[in-house]
Design a protein around this nucleic acid. Structure first.
Lengths: 242, 242
DNA sequence: TAGTGGTCTAGACCACCAT
DNA sequence: TGGTGGTCTAGACCACTAG
């Protein structure tokens, strides 16, 4: 009957975040002191500090030694943090667009040298290629190329059946029983190939952001080699450098 | 006579990092348990955990509940993290190039609407523009445009005298007595203007990464509106998405 | 079940900053 | 000086994972 309770400090962080978004603590305003807040929530100062650390990490507050903790002046300015491994479709939605996935093709392939190095498998071994696009308000904004190693997919038929309805993320988690952990990638600017021009509906003078890299699980095992091309005129990345 | 000692947990983090880079703890290997390490360093488990948090935040280790802490398999793969607000010249050096700054021009200006909004000053008020490039092995790879609000610069003469030898970062800290804290920006891909083509020595078909945004101090006050154009063929950004 | 990391406490003292 | 956040302790119990 009882829900397994989240850690105390997370509950407190949640409540504090609520107060910030509700305007109880306004941008730039100083929060009550740590002992004060700890008393309010009836926890030790250590626990309260863990909650504040969560908010600080998320950029909601700024702590200043000897002075106090303050609500960040620019909290919420960033909608799609570049460093977050969120499903792309969610980042589009957060930007206020109607978002849709569309799978272009799913096919078996022999993995080439580049893919083999990234996925740490034999050249020529079996892999699966998924090409897809993401639409924002009916308009294509992202082109995705994903290469999965053969060992990861229990049954190729599942690709057709499941992938068209699920996201790659949930496909990996639910069907392949692996946990995506981090995507190590490089970022560059490129001009579109004719195929990409056609797919994204752009001309040859529209540069794209290319994010190319490998997705690893918690143990450092490669799960996916992916390329993502973003229309720079339609999809804005936000980045906070500290 | 005594050096002001760094916090204990930082010293411990430093030592543990050394062990990792020295190969005492190899990539993928499990670290000793927390109680074990705490005993080794003669500190409480809480303090030892703070040290591990530092390593985890830096991507050096990964902690796994109920199992142990492990050295990240891909630590050190990333040389120039996109989310870091380091002097650009340092990131070039870390990539193994000979790096150099070169100031193209410093001039007074009347701040236009876009700059005024970013810097939160009056349109038409006094500002200073600095144009510069960064060279990697003699070759220009980054073009920088920086706009400083007039109130920030105590004496315009200092700009000429100091800026040509210092970095923007140290100029702001030492001469302007402010502390840069975060750079909130957008990332996009663009084709070069004729002027940029000339400066960076590229043709009109070479797309560039544009990072454009505002630098804020700890209190959320705008210090600088900047544009940075990166040659995508010469300068690779690395990005870890989690 | 044994061992790991995760959470939490109650208290102490230090370092920083405004006044 | 007084109040703030930063560091540190010694101990307790919980939650997760392997064998």
């Amino acid at each position: 009957m009882f829900q397994s309770r989240a850690p105390l400090y997370m509950e407190i962080a949640k409540e504090l975040k609520k107060r910030i978004t509700d305007g109880v603590y306004a941008p730039g305003q100083q929060l009550p002191s740590e002992p004060e807040l700890a008393a309010q929530f009836g926890v030790s100062r250590g626990t309260l500090r863990e909650a504040l650390s969560v908010l600080e990490k998320e950029g909601a507050i700024r702590r200043r030694h000897g002075i106090g903790s303050f609500v960040e002046a620019h909290y919420n300015k960033v909608v799609a943090g570049m460093e977050r491994l969120d499903p792309l479709i969610d980042t589009i939605r957060r930007s206020g667009y109607e978002a849709k996935d569309q799978v272009l093709s799913i096919r078996e392939t022999k993995i080439d040298a580049k893919g083999a190095e990234a996925l740490e498998v034999e050249v020529g071994s079996v892999g699966y290629v998924i090409e897809s696009i993401r639409l924002a308000d009916q308009e294509p904004v992202i082109y995705c190329f994903d290469l999965l190693p053969g060992w990861l997919v229990p049954d190729p038929a599942l690709l057709e059946n499941r992938y068209r309805t699920d996201s790659l993320s949930s496909f990996l988690k639910d069907t392949c029983q692996v946990k995506p952990y981090q995507f190590i990638s490089t970022v560059s600017a490129v001009l579109p190939f004719p195929k990409t021009m056609r797919i994204l509906g752009i001309d040859k003078k529209s540069p794209l952001i290319l994010i190319e890299g490998t997705l690893y699980d918690e143990n450092g095992k490669p799960l996916n080699y992916g390329k993502q091309l973003f229309r720079s005129d339609k999809y804005q990345f936000h980045l906070v450098r500290k």
